[in-house]
Design a protein around this nucleic acid. Structure first.
Lengths: 184, 184
DNA sequence: TAAAATCTACCTATCAATCGGTAGTTTTCT
DNA sequence: AGAAAACTACCGATTGATAGGTAGATTTTA
């Protein structure tokens, strides 16, 4: 793996653990074994690094979503989507990168903010299509559902972390659907 | 308002905008018109300040929840709860303090982490009681619902901020219940 | 084909600013 | 007088960022 990828991977872990302020050029450089100026060689400013990080995270997330969709043909895309979040949490025990950055977005550089917005817009659109196709919803209703599900999952990641219990996700998948209908 | 309250109020705004790293002793002191050492007089360490901040936030939040509950007798407590979140967002255009800190919790001092956990446990308990009383649920089902609703609202705050649109909350209240049943 | 120019991938060294925190002193209030 | 609430004056560490340099690979030009 080249240095640039190493930097992005390491930065992702740090951001997902504690947000935008939880990484520094020196820290990244030290742990990789280069100098902080070399990190600046790949990323002119911290904002650039953050923006590229979010952009790549979004692309990888959506790509693996489509991959899973293609390979698991008999599973509901909604369950697939829920399990993507649950899996990310259980695998890394970390927040969603864009969820955390989204919560902090008031304090982020503009370029990072835009990438966070992109993540949410693309995810809402992906889910909206699923609700239209799987549940025969109208465009409007599907969008509302998409936003609600995405919010629910981002929030669940927070709760799972705080309560130190990833089983809170289990009530969401269709297998245990007795508890899953959240009609308020 | 005394200095200590001023410090806490100012710190709350800064944390709700950008997280735990978004305030410093110097910044708080400058904006209030005292010296940073005077902030240390009231709060020995940054962890102490953060912990007291979260503790007070939790107490105020739950107290005004009970206040509203007592004054608005004919409204569902669930709608009341939802509107507390929506109101906080529209009034301050800021995240839930403990939602943001919860997302960052891996990087927080232990004392702050404990206060964040307290916020979520008390809120889950409050909602659980509502679901038991209003919807005649079992203890277990009510807890699942409480966790789901809290997660949904914390996540909605993130989405509302990122999309810059607080109307995403509107689909949740009982008045527009056509779109509100989130049965997956 | 060989020299010249350019690029890649780092480096050393340093900057002003900011960070959380401390010791000891002075002012203000009761 | 004595306690509370501020202050001055620091400390060591870290931050993002910049200037300038270098060895080696690659590309362009004559």
């Amino acid at each position: 793996m080249n240095k640039k990828s190493q930097i992005l991977t390491l930065a992702e872990n740090k951001v997902r653990a504690g947000g935008y302020g939880n990484f520094s050029f020196r820290e990244l450089a030290d742990e990789i074994g280069i100098k902080s100026s070399s990190v600046h060689y790949y990323f002119r400013t911290k904002g650039d690094l953050g923006a590229q990080l979010a952009h790549q995270y979004t692309n990888v997330f959506l790509a693996s979503l489509d991959d899973e969709k293609a390979s698991l043909q008999n599973t509901s895309c909604i369950d697939l989507y829920i399990n993507m979040f649950k899996g990310a949490l259980e695998k890394d025990n970390q927040m969603c990168l864009c969820g955390l950055l989204g919560a902090q977005s008031d304090s982020l550089p503009e370029q990072v903010k835009l990438e966070i917005k992109r993540f949410f817009e693309l995810n809402i659109h992906w889910l909206q299509q699923v609700f239209i196709e799987e549940k025969s919803m109208t465009i409007e209703a599907a969008k509302v559902k998409a936003i609600q599900l995405l919010a629910l999952l981002e929030g669940m990641m927070i709760l799972a972390k705080v309560l130190n219990d990833s089983s809170v996700f289990d009530s969401l998948t269709a297998e245990n659907s007795t508890a899953s209908d959240l009609n308020l």
